[in-house]
């Protein structure tokens, strides 16, 4: 049997028809998806009506609640910065062959990840002053003053230390994902282990851990609501305070939830842009 080779200059009518059907299917799915989302919002609107949501109350108190964004962002941004620094040292400790560094890092990760963040918040805020008091009575003057933290620093410490422990594992995985050949190439030109880590491994590892750091930041933004228990005037505190006063908690909490949600959407969009930016050129 001979093979005839006839090159077509354009897709056949059959191919065109199938392609069109495929496109229609994708388009149909997108349209249905939009309908579902619209449906959800309509249902919510109806629900608000049935539950006698006081929309004008929500609107009036929006300004009061939204003012809490400042503290929410402050605590989250400072918290994530602290967490990144701790995670960097934590990861180096976890990978270290020095038993002290390794032991400290392992304990840090295990203990912090094994205890609730809310408990940690209370320890920083309520437990620490007690330690200060004890130390003071043992003759360390100034200890109590030093260890009695205002709510905001205590919140930043609690969030930073807690997320630092989780991020330690992220950083460690990032460092370990860099192939051994990179370190070997650096050693082969005479670089020390420290130089290799600083100049070759970490720059590559940090690029890899940017997406998970972004996720952690979004998660921390929401966990920052826990500092409301110390009376920091951030979003959640303002929402609950206003809600209790007028017995309109559902309204004020809904407002707070929407604000958190919008902030997260904005942050995720920023993160996507950052990743696209970092992904240019250097990587395949």
């Amino acid at each position: 049997m001979s093979t005839t080779i006839v090159a077509a200059t354009q897709p056949s009518a059959d191919a065109e028809r199938n392609l069109a059907a495929q496109r229609a299917k994708v388009r149909g799915f997108v349209i249905k998806l939009i309908v579902v989302w619209v449906g959800i919002f309509v249902a919510l609107g109806v629900g608000f009506k049935v539950l006698r949501f006081d929309m004008s109350f929500m609107y009036d108190r929006l300004g009061f609640i939204i003012a809490g964004i400042e503290y929410t962002l402050l605590v989250s941004a400072a918290g994530i910065s602290l967490a990144i620094i701790l995670a960097l040292f934590g990861a180096l400790g976890r990978l270290s062959r020095n038993p002290i560094a390794n032991g400290l890092a392992t304990f840090y990760v295990s203990f912090i990840r094994g205890t609730p963040l809310l408990v940690q918040v209370y320890v920083w805020y309520l437990g620490l002053p007690q330690i200060g008091q004890q130390l003071e009575s043992l003759g360390l003057t100034g200890a109590q003053k030093l260890l009695t933290l205002p709510a905001i620093p205590a919140g930043i410490l609690a969030l930073g230390v807690c997320y630092g422990a989780y991020m330690t594992e992220t950083f460690r995985a990032g460092i370990q994902s860099i192939s051994k050949g990179q370190a070997e190439a650096a050693y082969s030109v005479g670089m020390t282990p420290g130089q290799t880590m600083r100049r070759i491994i970490l720059p590559q590892a940090l690029r890899i851990v940017i997406p998970p750091i972004g996720n952690d930041f979004v998660a921390m933004l929401k966990d920052s609501s826990l500092v409301s228990v110390m009376g920091v005037w951030e979003l959640t505190y303002r929402a609950t305070k206003m809600g209790r006063r007028y017995f309109r908690s559902l309204e004020t909490l809904t407002v707070a939830a929407i604000i958190y949600w919008v902030m997260c959407i904005v942050l995720q969009a920023l993160q996507a842009r950052l990743e696209a930016h970092m992904g240019r050129g250097e990587r395949k």
Binding site: S179, G181, Q182, E184, A185, A186, Y187, S188, V189, G190, I200, P203, Q204, R207, E282, R283
Partner: peptide, 16 residues
Amino acid sequence: RTKTGMVFQHFNLFPH
């Protein structure tokens, strides 16, 4: 290591 140079099978260039 400073007296010897090495070339690897998988190049191991620094990608960054």
